[in-house]
């Protein structure tokens, strides 16, 4: 069953997440696939990865900082941010900084412990793709984005705080 929501719809996932990777050979074992690799892995092997036939994106854990990605940030079509557990809120800050400070326009994907009741806040912080935890009901999750119709703050999804719109 599809469990990736992108731009408000359930969709086919063309990416494979490498949760752990020892060396660049793991990619070459399956040529042509699109991989999301750990930021550390990419930093270590970026030259080896340059020749890889498929596309490579990165994911950051919640204790990593998007400001450490470096100048190639804009070259990724996708950056994934991990929720080791849904109650770890650091990736919300990373998402906003990607969008608002780095003006990143590619896909920002939530991975890990991604649950229905956090989707709305995630979307407000700039996530536009959600790799749901396998036990989540995808149809029900689609309704989460309409939990609220407006918001007080200026965030990624609404560039103007309510007090400037009232």
């Amino acid at each position: 069953m599809q469990k990736l929501i992108k731009n408000g719809q359930l969709t086919q996932d063309y990416w494979t997440i490498l949760r752990e990777a020892t060396g660049p050979e793991v990619l070459n074992a399956v040529p042509g696939k699109n991989f999301i690799v750990p930021l550390k892995f990419w930093k270590l092997y970026r030259e080896d990865l340059a020749d890889y036939a498929g596309e490579v994106a990165i994911w950051l854990d919640s204790d990593e900082n998007v400001n450490d990605i470096g100048s190639e940030l804009a070259s990724f079509s996708l950056i994934a941010l991990n929720f080791p557990i849904f109650s770890d809120g650091r990736s919300y800050t990373n998402a906003r900084e990607l969008r608002e400070c780095h003006k990143y326009e590619g896909e920002v994907r939530a991975i890990g412990d991604v649950l229905r009741d956090q989707l709305y806040y995630m979307s407000r912080c700039g996530f536009d793709a959600f790799d749901l935890r396998s036990d989540q009901n995808p149809e029900n999750c689609l309704t989460a984005f309409a939990d609220f119709s407006t918001s007080y703050q200026a965030t990624t999804s609404e560039s103007s705080p309510l007090f400037r719109r009232r």
Partner: peptide, 16 residues
């Protein structure tokens, strides 16, 4: 009141 509105449903700071 300004702080109340800013802090209510602040999506970035719900899981501090």
């Amino acid at each position: 009141e300004a702080i109340r509105q800013w802090s209510t449903f602040h999506p970035e700071f719900a899981f501090l």
